[in-house]
Design a protein around this nucleic acid. Structure first.
Lengths: 314, 314
DNA sequence: CTGGATCCACAACCAATGGTTGTCAATCCG
DNA sequence: CGGATTGACAACCATTGGTTGTGGATCCAG
């Protein structure tokens, strides 16, 4: 019964999250495994670190005393390891496209850990990136993990890391441009127009389900490459509304970005990697990425495709 | 395949010893287990830490770079753990008697680790201390592990930590006092006189074997309590020579301390503890104690009882 | 009040881990 | 040359640390 660094890492993450399930997700183990780890640490140290109820987790006084020391020990440990592993090749990361969340996620991770070195690709679709992942030609990809053209490959692992609301993008001279928010009823007459997802079956599937849910006609235009191209296509629209993430830079372009509400469509972003890829830098990255949760299906303010609530298999 | 603190500790100790067998002893595992641990660490880090031949172990360049970082990580880890474990009760240590090595060993350990807190007892014999060890009334004892009144108890663990030469102690007006060293032939006419070992069967056994080896008569006087008492008894001797460790303070007492050579008698000191005693402070102490080795039996300069070369069982 | 959702922990299970013993190959030295 | 030394391979197996299934306590909306 000895204290080990895994126990300390589990403690630090659980202390951040104050929720064993989410801490377990961040470490890619079940809540029960996380609970056992913390229990083992507590027994090795001889004193409880957390007080738990069935619903809440709080640090004990000893836990609060231990936390800064534990963080320092973890930091020294990771520093020592990283100093030797520093010669790792860059992580090969597919970030989908610059219009979407993955690039922001990666930038945030890089800000948090300057040792992270990456080599980017933008395949514009998880369905397109997965064959490369399976062949271990890339280390990481991001995307929506349902509505793929095939069953989920068993050698791949994924974790939900972000849930992103979609906004409407409308030319300033459009009839809807004066609204501060849009509802499905506002969109019925005008429809939705987007660049064709090409090989990104999961994005096409998402949009189809969204159009069904909103009862709005959906039309695909020519595929767009990059943000500027997308903005140009949205500006060319006379009727249909464009959709995209908040991070699309519309300022000064003649486009208005308007939130969609009741429901706000949410796009789930998961990180995906190969089960056998044991590169330390990869492990560090995925451990660092935050856990995300989908809103309860009962929450009418948001919409997520039903299929996205299904667990492992699709 | 992940780096862990056990691997780092193994690395640091192996880097100190540059000998896998001795490093393994310090960690209470076999040489093979130590070798595996280092190998696992090297695989996790992706580069060798040591270059080995069948006879030598040397740090690689990466190993040398890693060592200070590893020491720092270990130190931060141990600090974090010790800060929480600081409320441990003192270790209950039997140090035999103040005339002998164990007290010095313990003082050195305490100098190296100021967090070590101990409660001393002096039972003047391992044979006397072992029942208390078996009942876990004390945490640690020191002594010679052979010639006990019973077979070695399987619930106890021991490790050789020191090999101490014995010296002759002679009144300044004794015929032998002018000699700079003594040989067995010098002692035959005078004999050896010591306080009766009372319950310390292992010390009695050692002395009997020594007297046989040297061909010298052995006589026991009344038991002595402490150093001053022992010095007084040695001074009262008209003929026989006293024996003891170098640390016996004879300065200004009228006693001369003279080395015995060809052979120098060596007394082996082992640390002994209970297998089921998992107190972290105990683990820290025994991990900190140095490994010792007996000289090869072929080395005629020294004498150790033959039985002391036997492994686990006696 | 009831039923469903949430969240930590217990229990059973089992693959993986990390140790042991036995043995071997390379090397050194008397 | 033979014996001693020392790290590593191989076989074995007890222990470890994860998983899944389940349960109890609690919360909250209907």
């Amino acid at each position: 019964m000895e204290v080990d660094i895994h126990g300390i890492r589990a403690f630090v993450i659980a202390a951040e999250e104050l929720h064993f399930g989410r801490a377990g997700e961040r470490l890619f183990v079940s809540q029960q495994a996380l609970s056992k780890r913390i229990r083992r640490l507590e027994e090795a140290l001889g004193t409880p670190m957390f007080e738990r109820t069935t619903r809440t987790v709080e640090l004990t006084a000893a836990g609060s005393r231990f936390l800064p020391l534990a963080v320092e020990a973890l930091s020294a440990f990771d520093r020592a390891v990283a100093a030797i592993r520093v010669s790792d090749d860059p992580l090969r990361v597919d970030v989908y496209d610059e219009r979407f969340t993955p690039l922001r996620i990666l930038r945030a991770a890089s800000d948090r850990d300057p040792r992270l070195r990456v080599e980017l690709s933008m395949r514009q679709g998880l369905s397109v990136a997965i064959p490369a992942l399976r062949r271990q030609e890339i280390d990481v990809a991001f995307g929506r993990v349902h509505d793929l053209p095939w069953p989920w490959p068993p050698e791949l692992v994924r974790r939900l890391v972000h849930v992103e609301p979609l906004h409407a993008f409308i030319p300033e001279d459009h009839m809807l441009a004066g609204k501060s928010e849009l509802r499905p009823a506002d969109l019925c007459e005008w429809g939705i127009s987007l660049p064709d997802p090409a090989g990104a079956a999961e994005w096409r599937g998402y949009l189809r389900r969204l159009a069904d849910r909103l009862g709005v006609p959906l039309r695909f235009t020519a595929p767009a490459i990059g943000q500027r191209h997308l903005v140009e296509q949205f500006l060319r629209e006379k009727r249909a509304v464009g959709l995209g993430e908040m991070s699309i830079d519309a300022a000064g372009s003649g486009l208005r970005r308007i939130p969609i509400v009741d429901p706000t469509p949410l796009h789930p972003w998961s990180v995906v990697w190969h089960r056998q890829n044991t590169r330390p830098m990869l492990q560090t990255l995925i451990r660092d990425l935050p856990a995300a949760v989908l809103p309860p299906p009962s929450d009418r303010r948001y919409w997520v495709p039903d299929v996205d609530y299904l667990p492992a298999l699709s």
